[in-house]
Design a protein around this nucleic acid. Structure first.
Lengths: 354, 354
DNA sequence: TATATTTCCGCAATCGTTTGCACTCATGCA
DNA sequence: TGCATGAGTGCAAACGATTGCGGAAATATA
């Protein structure tokens, strides 16, 4: 019974004694249809409560007006913000967005690629798993010339459009910032090197050290998934015995926050005894006391650019997809956790924290 | 040319000298097909790189295996967490999720309902706009017996499944908590009353006051969209002149945080001079100093229940949809911002804040 | 051997739209 | 009056899968 209430263009055609083609064309504002007919058709469509069936149209046109979005998870600040922007932007252009989470599981990511292909999405944007080094499960899209763009966690040597933050510069900037604030022994908590963006931050970290003639020590760098638990474990090692580092560059803010709290508990003063810098400028970084210096990656801008890239590719079907890199700028947001050592520190910090 | 690489079941059938029906059935594990044939078909499907076309199947079956999700925005902690859970859970059952944002605009919500219907989603979950009081734009779904469940921001008197937090209890609990901690003049910053959940929290607030014989004052309650800007404006009014309140019940944590920071700037001590409680248990509430007492609404549980409700409805097609309310419990998370006034307050607070 | 039963498979219609092509009218012009 | 023109419309074939029904082959039963 719910079946029979679904009106189709056939119903409209019968009601109006017109052919379905005319109705279809009228609804799509085809130029060959007279204004009078168009009006009649649209009025009747309204009257009957007609709703187009996107699947039927999609089948015929071989396009779904839906684009896929694969992110590790949408509950994290950074991907969530990007997803928001992408979704809103594409919606403005009449596209739906299927947001999917890989939960940082390569297996899930592969399955997702497969099923998203089945829905015949018109384009795909993905920020990959931490552990994706082989991207061949996305080949189907490339081979069939379906627009594909990667962002944030992007592949190397894979012929696609890429939108990413300037991670090398980020790593360099943070490290140099800590050095300029007086740090001489800087720990870096990095994500796993399977993810290129961490490789680049590490490169930035190392180069900044080198430039300032600070020796790089293997024992001062950690590669791990950037969870709270892992951060705590790293802390246990770092602070097992002196000498303690005087600076920490954490590759995300969750890690930075965890370390800050750990230091607090250990009665290490931040920033007097040890300075901490995070990454991504999570809202929590600004709020905690002392507030944490972090790197803004401008997720909104990144989202805009991803959406723009997708739309451009959608407008030139058949255009060969090749590697091209769109670098989104970063900006160091200086806060209390890495402030210079002043005597009247306590109040100064408070003020800056504001 | 990308067209011609798209293999269909027809290709498989030709290759194997079988009929398309057999191929279709084989791929769908129909019992009437011999195991041998099924294996042959699947092998060939693999060999040809066949990928099912979900749109074609959907058109024929009149189902898309896609469910719609409409939330105000996915970048906010609470809806983001719920969306994550719903998406993951439904994906386990082979459903895609179209996540859409209304951006708290009724107009966008209405448009969304329309276009989501066009894609023939199999079910719809929505957390409505702050300003949605008329829900008739969702009638199409009800009329066509498409599973519809609301969560968090839910309608009243609209015959659908509803999953919501216990907002009355939340409002009551927070207020009573503040009273028990010694507050006698409690401000409540509420969301707009067009949204039922705020109405209920207000009711809880009022009833707690009444029970404890504290007079309710109209001047002590604010109805506004719960943004940072609005919170600041409210502060300006509240602290324009004494007497200052000794307790604030903010209906979200963004507001609570803003007020806390405002008080800090005004040199009002929290919790000694004024106690603050937020709502939703945003991650920031735990991290700020002093940490903010808040109400956990268990978004993960809510997400689970929404997903469960959707799946149940999907499994009994044609079942009449009627109002039914699933109340997710809430829990007050006591933190430093509302701690009892102790003499050695400073250290106590720190400890609790941990 | 003849008949009844399974088992397995094919035919063809169907889902709702879109679109190339052909066709019918008016109308304009010579 | 005859003919080209062009605007407006209709026919029918797709798009790729599913499925009720009927039938052939293989097997069991008498």
């Amino acid at each position: 019974m719910s079946k029979r209430t679904e009106k189709t263009i056939v119903d409209i055609a019968e009601e109006l004694k017109l052919s379905v083609s005319t109705v279809s064309r009228a609804l799509n504002n085809h130029p060959n249809i007279s204004t009078r007919t168009k009006e009649k058709v649209k009025k009747m469509a309204n009257k009957l409560g007609y709703r187009p069936n996107a699947m039927a149209a999609g089948l015929r046109n071989n396009k779904s007006r839906t684009i896929g979005l694969v992110v590790p998870r949408i509950s994290m600040f950074f991907p969530a913000t990007i997803s928001t922007v992408i979704q809103n932007k594409l919606h403005e252009h009449g596209y739906h967005v299927l947001i999917c989470q890989s939960n940082d599981s390569l297996e899930q990511e592969i399955a997702l690629a497969e099923t998203l292909y089945s829905t015949r999405i018109d384009a795909l944007a993905v920020s990959s798993t931490l552990y994706t080094t082989d991207f061949s499960h996305f080949d189907i899209f490339k081979d069939n010339n379906i627009p594909l763009v990667f962002f944030d966690r992007v592949p190397k040597d894979y012929k696609v459009k890429v939108v990413k933050g300037d991670d090398y510069l980020g790593g360099y900037t943070v490290t140099e910032h800590l050095i300029e604030k007086g740090c001489k022994d800087i720990v870096h908590i990095s994500g796993p090197l399977t993810c290129n963006l961490y490789t680049e931050r590490v490169a930035g970290y190392k180069n900044a050290l080198r430039k300032h003639k600070i020796p790089f020590k293997k024992s001062r760098i950690f590669y791990q998934e950037l969870t709270k638990e892992n951060a705590l474990q790293a802390c246990e090692k770092i602070f097992a015995r002196p000498p303690y580092p005087d600076g920490v560059f954490a590759a995300n803010d969750t890690t930075a926050i965890t370390i800050l709290e750990y230091c607090r508990k250990k009665n290490l003063r931040v920033p007097e005894d040890i300075k901490i810098v995070g990454y991504s400028n999570d809202p929590r970084a600004e709020i905690i006391t002392p507030s944490i210096t972090s790197v803004d990656q401008f997720p909104a801008i990144m989202g805009e650019r991803v959406a723009k890239a997708l739309l451009e590719l959608l407008q030139q079907p058949g255009a060969p997809q090749r590697y091209s890199e769109d670098l989104v700028p970063i900006q160091l947001i200086e806060r209390a956790s890495s402030a210079a050592p002043v005597s009247a520190s306590k109040t100064t910090v408070k003020k800056k924290a504001k």
